[in-house]
Computed example of a mutant assay.
Amino acid sequence: MNIAYWIVAGLLALFYFYSGTLKVSRSRDQLRPMMAWVDRVPLPALRVLGTVEILGATGLVLPPLTGIAPSLTPAAAIGFVLLQAGAIAVHLTGEDRRIVLNVGLTATAAVTIRLATRL
């Protein structure tokens, strides 16, 4: 189970760390080609979302690695499930109806929750 957790959670953490870093550091014009919804969200909210993604990625990796506050790991994964539920809603209410990635990330976060509770 430990190996499975590190594979799934590691990939999820890498994705969110990368995505969060882009949202925190790039302008709307730079994000628009890969994220069509950025014009519908205020820039401060976009920056906060990126920060939350970076913190969540850290929450998937550091607690099991250090043994400090291991209950934060499933909490971070639950946060990603909730984040993707909101992302799906944003995509479906706009003209961008591409939610396949969001559904995949939701499923991956759900698997991570299950694996984290067995660490």
Rank of each mutant, 00 (worst) to 15 (best):
M1W: 07
M1C: 06
N2K: 09
I3H: 05
A4Y: 03
I7F: 08
V8P: 02
V8C: 07
A9Q: 04
A9C: 10
A9K: 04
L12G: 01
Y16E: 05
Y16I: 00
Y16V: 00
F17T: 05
S19C: 04
S19D: 15
G20N: 06
T21N: 12
V24S: 03
S25P: 05
R26Q: 15
R28C: 07
L31T: 12
R32F: 14
P33Y: 03
W37A: 11
W37I: 15
V38W: 04
D39E: 15
R40V: 13
V41L: 14
V41K: 04
P42N: 13
L43Q: 12
R47D: 07
R47P: 08
L49D: 14
L49F: 12
L49T: 15
T51W: 12
E53T: 07
L55K: 11
L55I: 15
G59V: 09
G59A: 08
V61G: 02
V61D: 02
L65I: 09
G67R: 04
I68P: 00
P70H: 03
P70I: 10
S71A: 14
A75C: 07
A77S: 08
G86C: 12
A87V: 11
I88R: 06
A89M: 08
V90W: 04
H91D: 02
L92E: 06
L92A: 05
G94T: 14
E95A: 09
R97A: 02
V100E: 04
L101D: 02
V103N: 00
G104P: 06
A107C: 08
A109H: 05
A109M: 10
A109V: 04
R114P: 00
